[in-house]
Nucleic acid binder design. Structure first.
Length: 253
DNA sequence: CGTTTTTGACCCGCGC
DNA sequence: GCGCGGGTCAAAAACG
């Protein structure tokens, strides 16, 4: 992004306020019309530029997502623990494999299809509930070393028939974001489609998730800065209040 | 009274 | 072998 500062010309005209006081000469009106057209063109250009920048950012995000997907295997090696890597070696063709032979003491199922979903919640909301249309039974909670927020462990309520598990923990970077990690695939239809929270991000790539969580604070700060600039620009404009007042009275009467 | 949640204990893999 | 940390179990408590 280049220069982020800009000024919004509200295209206000003091003449409009005198409209009932004296007749305005045609030349003045023509001149004003021409000026407004120019301003309109200028605004259109600004809008086009903004939308171009938005599209370019969106493309960039998609590129990053694809890039990380390609290198998923390498990245996983960096992120996942040795334990997880060992588990992965038993996982073939996205299926559940019982490794009873490999671990006779404690037979258990290893799941694949690990996906992570980030959900924005209200800061006052202290629950660890991610509405995803499925019913879950909480079977544990643990405070982990790298995050002060407790991690909640859930099993699908159809267990043991359905082997899906999920972990829900608040983000270290932003406590209002819930990070839900799903392991496995449901072998039954979704009980309820109602009240499903729209995720901020849904990825199978842990590296992309990390990057997303790092960027989210930076981006929100940039957006806040932009809004502040716009607000400041509007408030600095001397005829802004007058224009708003005129517009409101126009609507009322 | 059956189901769900809570929470301390336990298990297990890993690093030193 | 020991300690640490993440994951799971299961008894007790809470809830509807």
């Amino acid at each position: 992004m280049g220069n982020k500062s800009f000024f919004i010309d509200l295209n206000t005209n003091p003449l409009l306020h005198n409209i009932n006081r004296s007749p305005i000469p045609r030349e003045t009106l023509d001149e004003e019309l021409s000026r407004m057209r120019k301003e309109n063109k200028k605004l259109e250009t600004t809008l086009t530029r903004l939308s171009e920048k938005y599209n370019s950012l969106q493309t960039h995000i998609i590129e990053l997502q694809q890039k990380y997907s390609i290198h998923e295997e390498d990245n996983s090696k960096l992120i996942l623990s040795r334990k997880r890597k060992a588990e992965e070696e038993y996982c073939v063709n996205n299926s559940y494999i019982n490794i009873e032979e490999a671990s006779p003491k404690r037979p258990r199922e290893i799941t694949t299809n690990i996906s992570t979903v980030c959900v924005k919640t209200s800061p006052s909301d202290q629950t660890s509930v991610v509405k995803d249309g499925y019913n879950w039974r909480k079977y544990g909670q643990k405070v982990t070393r790298d995050n002060p927020s407790p991690r909640a462990y859930f099993k699908c309520s159809f267990a043991p028939t359905c082997p899906v598990k999920k972990k829900v923990q608040r983000s270290v970077k932003d406590a209002s974001i819930l990070v839900a990690t799903y392991e496995g695939e449901h072998n039954h239809p979704q009980p309820s489609q109602a009240e499903i929270t729209v995720p901020l991000v849904n990825t199978t790539d842990p590296t992309f998730l990390n990057k997303f969580m790092e960027d989210i604070n930076t981006n929100s700060l940039q957006q806040q800065h932009l809004v502040e600039q716009m607000a400041s620009s509007l408030s600095k404009n001397p005829s802004f209040a007058a224009t708003v007042a005129t517009a409101i009275s126009g609507l009322l009467f």
